[in-house]
Design a protein around this nucleic acid. Structure first.
Lengths: 233, 233
DNA sequence: CCAGCCGAGTGGTCCGACCACTATGCGTCC
DNA sequence: GGACGCATAGTGGTCGGACCACTCGGCTGG
């Protein structure tokens, strides 16, 4: 007799849960290759189309990775893989939701910066300085933004919590910052931003967690406050 | 002439980006209904199958919602909608990743509890007390867990940041806590947990943010530390 | 006027074919 | 003998069409 798998939502949904369960229960290890789409479909008694939708869903979630011509593989399941979609949240949020997102970022970023101040090594600090210098050396907004992101990413990474770093990465997604900062920078906030970045770097170099926390919180808080007034009218 | 949309990854990926862009640019409002799958496919010059995969991907991300027989709609794009997938991260993370996740939760939960202490209203406080009492009134682990979750959710909600509450919700997903707490509670941590919950409630009732922050941090920190020793050998 | 039916329209599922790419192994050429 | 290159089988990617399950609004009959 067949297993009694009653109609529980759509077939595709069932397939998604099935594969997730396989991974959660350890039947599928990170990096391991899955059976072919055709076989998976047959095994669950569904069509290849439905199975493909399930695979696609898990792919965008960063759980699976499909390599054309080769096969389907479980990702490393690292923080970065699974939190990639987090950027979508930042990209699609609007209005009050943006302020909330910045508040979350302020909380995490300040803590991450504090941790980084205590733990950062000399060569990592050098990398931070490199981005700081590059950021101040150009006027091209694109390049400034890129080094700004790298600056904070380096710090978050130095905090020693990859998960937190990945979340912060999502919260600072390129399009998110571009949307918010466009207006912010237009108000001549360049100088202020540079001062704040310098303060953060100073605290890191001094290995002073409290100063780092304060500097980072103020840095994000400035943007947050500006955005709040933009919306509050 | 047609728009020149060069081959950029898979067609499905292009469709996903396309729809995301429609929403980001405001061409699609929250709650609004999309054209039919068949028309969307025709409009982008791809097959319905591929379009369906794109829609399914956006559905699991909480961006779209498909109602059988009715149509496809944009969700409200509230924090809860978009962060639903966050639970998957908690469910699939293992080893050191779990500790990192708990660390993030400690940071956010302590801040959220502190904010709640300052802002919580009397009736919300009553709701918190209700879950606290219910949690202490039973020995059924399932029920304890349910009220435990509700207890923290209520507090997070009282903090006034829905986004943060939604993230915390994901970090405390049912299966996640079940996995970690099973072992933790077996070590007779019931009493300690109750004491910690009582402390959190006391701080909330007294509207004392600092005490609330400390109590919440200690509460999560206990579990975090226990898990760390479990892994560290 | 209302209740019930019914049909058009929509998403959900399935099938089968073909395309694009990868990896492997065999044969050829140096 | 070894390195290169090409044929080939196998994989995911795409397509089109068919049918099913469900919803909803309008029509019909009371």
């Amino acid at each position: 007799m067949d297993e009694a798998a009653p109609q529980k939502g759509t077939v595709t949904q069932r397939a998604i849960e099935e594969i997730k369960a396989m991974i959660a229960e350890g039947r599928l290890e990170p990096g391991q290759r899955l059976p072919t789409e055709r076989e998976l479909a047959a095994r669950l008694g569904i069509s290849r189309s439905s199975m493909r939708e399930a695979i696609r869903a898990l792919t965008v979630m960063g759980v699976l990775e499909a390599r054309h011509g080769s096969g389907i593989y479980v990702t490393a399941l690292e923080a970065g893989d699974l939190l990639e979609t987090f950027g979508v949240v930042a990209d699609l949020s609007r209005g009050p939701r943006l302020v909330e997102l910045l508040e979350v970022r302020r909380i995490l970023e300040s803590t991450a910066t504090a941790l980084a101040a205590a733990r950062i090594t000399d060569d990592r600090l050098a990398a931070v300085e490199k981005h700081l210098a590059a950021m101040n050396a150009t006027d091209d907004p694109e390049e400034v933004l890129a080094h700004d992101l790298a600056f904070h990413r380096e710090i978050a990474s130095a905090a020693g919590n990859e998960t937190m770093a990945a979340i912060l990465d999502g919260l600072s997604s390129r399009t998110f910052r571009a949307r918010v900062w466009r207006g912010y920078q237009e108000e001549g906030a360049f100088a202020r931003t540079r001062r704040e970045h310098a303060a953060i770097h100073r605290a890191l170099a001094a290995h002073d967690p409290e100063a780092a926390r304060a500097a980072a919180a103020a840095h994000v808080g400035e943007v947050e406050e500006w955005l709040r007034t933009q919306l509050g009218g």
